[in-house]
């Protein structure tokens, strides 16, 4: 009996090495491990043995079965995982088994950082459509028909009155139509401009709009909020300036510049030798806008601001061609 156990053990150990496929493995299982396989037969033969020999032989047989089973299991795993022979190695400097790594697109990373800062200041996120009507994109934002301010934004039209929004500002109107003050929202989103595509401009880009309307909001507070944002985002040592500008839906309107962090304000190609980088447009909400949404301009005041995410991302990461953001070359995306 012992001899037989030994023989079967040896042949099973030898045979398993030649097994390559699941079919061959199944044959191995039937030959050794099935109920009427070689091992099973021996168990049947156990009954014929002398009662006193049975426990010891039983133990040997169990060992045999376990060994055959483990050979089978190991092989099965090996074939199924389609691996070549997984060798034991002493070279622990071999690389580990890495996984693919993913990341957020640089535009998402930039936007997330902007959002994080405004969340801390009590802003909520609002959303609106990219396909807009003339009313929300222009008219209610105090761009009258036949007004040259409309030339500031080259527009893609779907029909005479339906267009692709040229800024996220129409969402200001949509929010105020639905909600009474206080309103404190940021509005991130995709906007479109019908401009020739070049290293500096693309036919679409992303903006973050901000709107705060409440009782007694001042221009001074607008400056405070944006300076806080800029210091959080660009670093607390930055210098800034606000200068007058023009947007039909804010008055007074301003643009905010920060010292160029590429040349420390000395003047370089990126800041066009001025030492300043324009980072956002802002202003106090024009009273005409309140008329469109039914707010009482005498009781409330507010401010709005907007910034381009592509521009900020390009400045932050030193990207000199906006198109690369939309090419999604994996070698580019892996850098973020």
């Amino acid at each position: 009996m012992i001899k037989k156990i030994e023989q079967i053990n040896q042949s099973a150990t030898a045979e398993i090495n030649s097994v390559k496929t699941l079919d061959e493995l199944e044959a191995f299982r039937i030959k050794y491990l099935a109920r009427n396989g070689l091992v099973g037969d021996l168990f049947d033969a156990l009954k014929t043995l002398d009662k006193s020999d049975r426990p010891l032989m039983g133990k040997y047989l169990n060992d045999l079965r376990n060994n055959a089973q483990s050979l089978f299991d190991k092989k099965k795993e090996e074939i199924e995982s389609n691996t070549t022979i997984r060798q034991e190695t002493d070279d622990l400097t071999l690389p580990g088994r890495r996984r693919w790594i993913g990341s957020r697109h640089p535009l998402t990373q930039t936007l997330d950082e902007i959002k994080r800062i405004f969340y801390k200041m009590g802003f909520e996120v609002a959303d609106g459509p990219e396909i807009e009507d003339d009313y929300h994109n222009f008219e209610a934002l105090n761009f009258p028909p036949d007004h040259p301010a409309r030339d500031m934004q080259d527009t893609f039209f779907i029909t005479d009155k339906i267009l692709l929004r040229t800024h996220t500002s129409p969402v200001q109107i949509r929010v105020m139509e639905k909600q009474k003050p206080p309103v404190r929202v940021i509005i991130p989103g995709r906007v479109y401009r019908n401009e020739a595509i070049s290293a500096r401009s693309y036919c679409l880009f992303h903006q973050v709009e901000g709107l705060y309307v409440d009782e007694g909001v001042t221009f001074s507070e607008l400056k405070g909020t944006l300076v806080t944002f800029a210091k959080q985002f660009y670093g607390s040592s930055l210098k800034f300036r606000f200068r007058p500008s023009y947007f039909p839906f804010t008055e007074p309107s301003a643009e905010m510049d920060i010292t160029c962090f590429l040349c420390n304000g000395k003047g370089c190609r990126v800041c066009k030798q001025t030492g300043w980088l324009e980072i956002l447009g802002c202003g106090m909400v024009d009273p005409n806008v309140y008329k469109y949404v039914g707010y009482d301009e005498e009781k409330i005041s507010g401010y709005a601001f907007g910034m381009g995410i592509e521009r900020i991302a390009m400045l932050m990461y030193g990207i000199d061609d906006i198109r690369i953001l939309y090419q999604n070359d994996i070698r580019f995306l892996k850098q973020f």
Partner: peptide, 18 residues
């Protein structure tokens, strides 16, 4: 001068009820 308007960093935090 916009630069002569003070930077008022404290803002009241009255959140919307939405």
């Amino acid at each position: 001068g916009y630069d002569n308007i003070p930077v008022h960093e404290i803002t009241k935090l009255r959140l919307s009820e939405n």
